[in-house]
């Protein structure tokens, strides 16, 4: 794999911070783990760049990347919307799966891509994640998942809803095999993804300030008639309410994951 980070480091291009909307150089973003030098917000990381930050050099081996363009209920406008996402992201779907080494430990990893239709979960995303758990069971490997999502992909109707069950029971099977599952919730993780595999890890961490919840803020405000505090559904809110184990900054995540892996032996699928 050619280094995405290396390329961006020498890029002359500018990107726009998704929070403050200021123009920042790509090279500067790469040096700062995609944290905006202007407003210090955690900007979104392209999944292949994320994998490079986290994993040992050249250790990532992509799996389940077959190009499947599912439109199971022929929902009007879906094909066009997805085609635009595919073109923009250069990816075939909203999740990237594979195996890699982190601090020398072999692991399965998946990273969701919020640039791809808001990382919503349709049948292909569900199939890739369930397949990764099944692969991890066969190979006796841990799974590390980076979640991000707007929720279930409504353009695939009830079939997308069923992916919540599919991924959750695959996670359960992996757990019943005695294997380790670590989740990192990134901005934003909402709806059907929060309400399925994303909150089923043995250890669940989140990035600072990430939006994490089930129902959207506007829906809750309409329902309760009151304005919610700014911190509502933030990673810090979820830590306070006992939903996550901790908040880990980007620069520390590789070491954190390495430490957690190191505390689990081969019996639980962790192999150096």
């Amino acid at each position: 794999m050619s280094g995405v980070l290396e390329t961006m480091l020498h890029s002359e291009k500018n990107a726009v911070c998704c929070k403050c909307k200021k123009s920042v150089s790509e090279a500067e973003l790469v040096k700062r783990y995609f944290i905006c030098p202007e407003c210090h917000a955690y900007d979104r990381i392209p999944p292949r760049a994320r994998i490079e930050y986290l994993t040992d050099k050249d250790s990532f081996n992509e799996l389940f990347c077959a190009d499947i363009d599912a439109d199971p209920i022929s929902f009007p406008g879906y094909a066009e919307k997805k085609a635009a996402s595919r073109k923009k992201s250069g990816e075939t779907e909203a999740v990237l799966c594979g195996t890699a080494r982190i601090g020398g430990y072999e692991t399965c990893i998946f990273v969701m891509n919020s640039e791809f239709m808001m990382a919503s979960m349709g049948t292909v995303v569900g199939d890739r994640i369930a397949s990764l758990f099944e692969y991890a069971i066969k190979r006796k490997l841990p799974v590390i998942g980076y979640a991000a999502s707007g929720g279930a992909r409504m353009q695939e109707g009830v079939l997308s809803l069923m992916q919540m069950v599919k991924t959750s029971i695959a996670a359960k099977k992996h757990s019943d095999a005695g294997l380790l599952f670590i989740v990192c919730l990134t901005d934003p993780t909402m709806g059907g993804v929060t309400a399925s595999f994303a909150t089923l890890g043995d250890i669940i961490i989140a990035e600072p300030n990430a939006l994490i919840g089930f129902a959207g803020r506007r829906v809750i405000e309409q329902n309760t008639g009151g304005k919610l505090p700014e911190s509502f559904q933030s990673a810090e809110f979820q830590l306070e309410h006992g939903v996550i184990d901790g908040i880990v900054e980007r620069k520390d995540q590789r070491d954190y994951l390495t430490d957690v892996l190191s505390m689990h032996a081969e019996k639980w699928g962790v192999k150096a």
């Binding site: 919540m164 069950v165 959750s168 029971i169 996670a171 359960k172 099977k173 019943d176 929060t194 309400a195 399925s196 595999f197 994303a198 909150t199 089923l200 919840g213 089930f214 129902a215 829906v219 809750i220 329902n223 309760t224 009151g226 919610l228 509502f232 559904q233 309410h241 006992g242 939903v243």
Partner: peptide, 26 residues
Amino acid sequence: GANPGAGAEERGIAEAIAENLYEFGA
């Protein structure tokens, strides 16, 4: 739909749903 209230979020509605999917399958 599940209760879309602030209290439900505070008490982990997403985790409660996820846990049922996880357990009921087996």
